[in-house]
Design a protein around this nucleic acid. Structure first.
Length: 281
DNA sequence: AAGCTGCCCTGCGGGC
DNA sequence: TGCCCGCAGGGCAGCT
């Protein structure tokens, strides 16, 4: 499900319930998600204070006051839902427990945060906060799209000589962190680049043009609360609405917003790509 | 070493 | 209504 905009939307929704607050009780309803949960996770979290709630790529990171950080990944179907707080002047009651509620945080002050993940491609782990750079799930990640390390010269150099299609290259989290299947298709459409083209054979100027396009697409998506196709919910349970702004994603055979020709769907490395063969070269 | 494919898992929509 | 198939916002592991 969640790419950078969805994860950022969830993080922002969790901030008032979690940042600066103590986890009064952590409950773990099963021993594993994608991988086994860390040893004694419930005990290691219960009583800890969340000093900061950050995002890196598609991961939410909660720095605790005990030298450890909690990593949360939503996989494809993961949700983090807040209840028991005031939202927009109304009290948000605790809902009935749902199937696939795998981890629950009761926060001091009455908020409850529930991690629900039907497909269980999500993950949680604990790592030493000081050891973040060496931590295996984060060590290989490329620059954040909004960070200073992500710029035109970097992207041109990083893709130079690469034979893989530009679609696959932008999906590679070592090149740039946080893009997924939706936003790569949307980015390449806006940049007018054919997703099948070998990354290293696209002119430097056109590769450079991807940098501001990526930032614009992600910014617009965050402002819309992400894209809700199937699973994505904000922490409040609300839907995102960027799917209404899709120009090509999930629009197979519908008219291109620019030329009116049909949007095409192809499969690249096992995943759908949507593009306009008339507008993208 | 880069670049493929398979696979983890559940749920849903469409066709018959 | 039920069954089967294909497909889904990710990314690791194991090949070539």
């Amino acid at each position: 499900m969640p790419e950078l905009p969805e994860v950022e939307t969830v993080r922002r929704g969790l901030l008032p319930a979690m940042e600066g607050r103590i986890i009064a009780e952590a409950r773990v309803n099963r021993p594993d998600l994608r991988w086994p949960l860390p040893e004694r996770m419930a005990e290691r979290l219960t009583g800890a204070r969340v000093e900061r709630l950050r995002r890196r790529s598609k991961y939410i990171l909660a720095d605790l006051d005990r030298g450890e950080s909690l990593l949360i990944h939503l996989g494809m179907s993961g949700r983090m839902l807040v209840s028991g707080t005031m939202i927009g002047g109304f009290h948000h009651d605790h809902p009935a427990p749902q199937k696939h509620d795998h981890v629950v945080f009761e926060m001091e002050g009455g908020a409850r945060v529930t991690f629900n993940d039907a497909r269980r491609f999500g993950a949680m782990d604990l790592f030493p906060t000081e050891g973040e750079a060496a931590y295996w799930l984060l060590a290989q990640l490329g620059p954040e799209p909004f960070g200073n390390d992500f710029h035109e010269d970097y992207l041109v150099a990083r893709l130079k000589g690469r034979a893989m299609p530009i679609k696959a290259a932008l999906l590679d989290q070592r090149v740039v962190a946080g893009l997924g299947n939706i936003y790569v298709s949307e980015t390449l459409f806006r940049a007018g680049i054919d997703p099948r083209r070998p990354a290293g054979r696209i002119s430097a100027a056109r590769i450079a043009s991807l940098v501001p396009v990526i930032r614009t697409v992600l910014t617009e998506a965050i402002e819309a609360g992400g894209s809700s196709l199937r699973d994505h919910r904000q922490a409040s349970g609300e839907l995102g609405y960027f799917q209404h702004a899709f120009r090509v994603y999930d629009r197979e055979n519908q008219p291109c917003v620019t030329c009116g020709g049909p949007v095409r769907r192809i499969v690249q490395s096992g995943r759908s790509t949507f593009y306009c063969p008339h507008c993208q070269h």
